[in-house]
Amino acid sequence: MPDPVKAGRRRTAAPSKGDLREQQILDVLEDLLAVKSFDSLTTSDIAERAGLSRASTYFYFSSKQEALVALFARTVESLREKSRAAAGDPAAPRDAIATAMTRTRDRWHEHGLIMRVAIDQASTIPELGTLWTETADVFIDAITTILVRADVASHEGPDGARALAGALCWMIERTFYHASAVSPEALDQASETCRVVWLRTAGLEP
């Protein structure tokens, strides 16, 4: 399995032919997951859709599990960037919360399927769980920062800002997970509900 951090790290140099081929394989995997379950998917399916031989596909990824880790790393890197942006957002807490929820909702609209598959597979592919936990930690940091700016106490304990941020983060994750599997409209509604919960936790009126 690849190093999750390395897999999710953005390259600064122009992509090589090999880099482009690797990204093509990940794009194909994402497309296939829209029509086939991960458990029933094979490396041959990926190779055929990508127009490659199995041997060529194995040159880039030793298994479909390794490819899924790389695809998930690519997906959550954007979530991490948006969470870091939320932590540094100079807007009033109410507006910062709205922006953070909109950005998170949009990412789930775009890649909700991949995130659900990765969450489902995390029990058997530990690298996925590590990536998701690390991404959640970045989001928790952002939520904590916004709560403190809204005058929520930052002390240790179950009612401190970070404890509340952790609960909010995982509430949002579970809510988005289920809603994104229903419909885009359900995800929009879930996002609004989570925004209201976050506002009330921050002591702000919706």
Rank of each mutant, 00 (worst) to 15 (best):
V28K: 02
A50V: 11
P93V: 01
A87V: 08
A98L: 06
L79I: 03
A92I: 05
G88W: 07
R49S: 00
V28I: 14
S37P: 02
L33N: 01
S44K: 08
E48M: 08
G88K: 07
A73S: 03
S37H: 02
L20R: 15
S44Q: 05
K64S: 10
F61T: 13
R49A: 13
A98E: 13
I97R: 02
E48R: 14
M101S: 03
A86S: 10
S62P: 06
S53D: 03
K82E: 15
L20P: 07
K36R: 07
Q65R: 15
D39K: 07
L20H: 05
V69D: 14
D95L: 09
S40K: 05
A55Q: 07
L52S: 08
D27P: 02
E66M: 11
Y58S: 00
D39V: 03
P90D: 04
R49K: 15
S78N: 01
R84F: 04
P90S: 10
S62C: 10
A98C: 05
G51A: 09
Q23I: 01
K82P: 03
K64T: 02
S44N: 11
S56I: 10
S56R: 08
A92M: 08
A96S: 09
R49N: 03
R21V: 12
S62H: 10
Q23R: 15
L32I: 11
T102S: 07
E22Y: 00
S53Q: 04
V35A: 03
E66Y: 06
F59P: 05
L79M: 14
K36T: 15
A87M: 12
Y60I: 08
F59C: 10
R21A: 09
E48V: 14
E30M: 10
A96E: 00
T102V: 08
L68S: 01
S63C: 13
A91Q: 13
L41D: 01
S78M: 12
Q23E: 13
E81K: 12
Y58W: 02
T102P: 00
A67V: 00
A34F: 12
V76H: 00
E81S: 07
A85E: 14
K64F: 10
D95A: 14
S63P: 06
F38I: 03
I46T: 10
A73D: 12
L52V: 11
